[in-house]
């Protein structure tokens, strides 16, 4: 865990909420993943302070907690990911022109955008995911650009 991640301030009220939610879970190892979900739901990621609380509470060694946490691709151990839009580049979306969207966005160069694997909405390809996790189906380049612009520059 980097010093930078460790030094990120966790708002007190979020930590209090987390501790109270955690205390409603049974103190058994099987609730490790559910505890991670609680943390991610509240903080938007799983910060070191929460990991330590979880390890204590479930009585699982910290090293094992991290080994498990980092094996799940959807659990975030950094807070950097916020604010991104994602363009699905799975096979079905590629068949519906995902590359064009990726290319045009790359050319525009002003947005926080990344590629992402299949979002399981292939029947509505091409698909993108907005910065709060919402899925959008059958998207068009111009529409994506204007929506991203709106959300990332406050609509200027």
């Amino acid at each position: 865990m980097s010093e930078r991640q460790r030094s990120i301030e966790i708002p007190d009220h979020e930590m209090r909420e987390f501790i109270s939610e955690l205390s409603m879970i049974e103190s058994e190892k099987q609730y490790l993943l559910p505890s991670f979900h609680v943390a991610q739901e509240i903080f938007g990621w799983v910060p070191p302070a929460a990991v330590e609380k979880i390890a204590d509470f479930l009585r699982v060694p910290l090293s094992e907690v991290y080994a498990t946490l980092t094996a799940y691709s959807e659990l975030r151990i950094t807070s950097d990911e916020k604010g991104y839009w994602f363009i699905c580049t799975g096979v079905a979306c590629e068949m519906k022109g995902a590359q064009n969207i990726v290319q045009e966005l790359a050319d525009a160069d002003e947005f926080k955008v990344k590629d992402i694997d299949c979002q399981f909405l292939c029947s509505l390809a091409p698909v993108c995911v907005d910065d709060s996790g919402g899925l959008h189906g059958r998207v068009e380049v111009s529409e994506v650009i204007s929506r991203i612009r709106e959300s990332q520059t406050g609509g200027e």
Partner: peptide
């Protein structure tokens, strides 16, 4: 009910 957290192998 349990919720997964990603990955094909999961």
């Amino acid at each position: 009910l349990r919720q997964g957290a990603g990955g094909y192998v999961c």
